[in-house]
Design a protein around this nucleic acid. Structure first.
Lengths: 107, 107
DNA sequence: TCCCAGGTACGACTTGCATCGTACCTTGTC
DNA sequence: GACAAGGTACGATGCAAGTCGTACCTGGGA
């Protein structure tokens, strides 16, 4: 399968889809952990240990990818996810900061 | 009925509820118009001319109010809605700017 | 006083979404 | 080659959310 599958371009990112993607607490958790990690960090879907089934994990990562928040590339056996930090910051400046600040509260 | 009905305090605003409220395009439109208007502007629900029924308008304004984005006070015949600009800016700095910037794109 | 306009409450309907089980594919390992 | 692990695809299910019609309440105006 091709690498570019459901990754919107920078200009194609829509605020509505981004907000809908971030309305789910599990997806916010993924973005927050990626944003708190080092720049360009690549993690597998399973490394987040989400308390849901594999099929649901795939569903959530698809939502994040189609919103333009993460980029997924195949690396051998796994599919690595990276945060599109620069794209998000350019298109929606300050958005990531709001998400990172949430971990000081309850989820 | 009391004035304070479903208006969360500043510390009670939750990012999840705010993002869920802003995931709907009609509710984003309301917030965007209020944010683009002058500070403290009070408008009636019907002044937005949303393309939905009266009952649905009430539903959307309730969502905005319970998320903490607007404040509604009775003024005689109507119920005026004002944007909680300072509260939003203090709790989620930069969020309103993202919404205002959306009107340059498609909805 | 009568009526209309602005909003709300309630119930119903429909769509979308989060979730899961299962089957299947791919890759790396033994 | 056989097998386990990481992900995906598909179908099904249950619940939340958007939408509406209707009835109702409250003020203001003719």
């Amino acid at each position: 399968m091709p690498d570019e599958q459901g990754h919107p371009e920078l200009a194609e990112m829509e605020l509505g889809k981004v907000l809908s993607a971030l309305a789910d607490p599990l997806r916010r958790l993924v973005v927050r952990e990626l944003a708190a990690g080092p720049e360009g960090e690549a993690r597998t879907c399973s490394s987040f240990a989400l308390p849901v089934s594999k099929a649901t994990v795939t569903h959530h990562f698809r939502a994040l990818r189609e919103a333009g928040l993460i980029r997924q590339v195949d690396r051998g056996n796994s599919r690595m996810a990276t945060l599109r930090r620069a794209d998000i910051e350019q298109r929606f400046p300050g958005l990531l900061a709001l998400l990172v600040a949430e971990d000081t509260q309850d989820v």
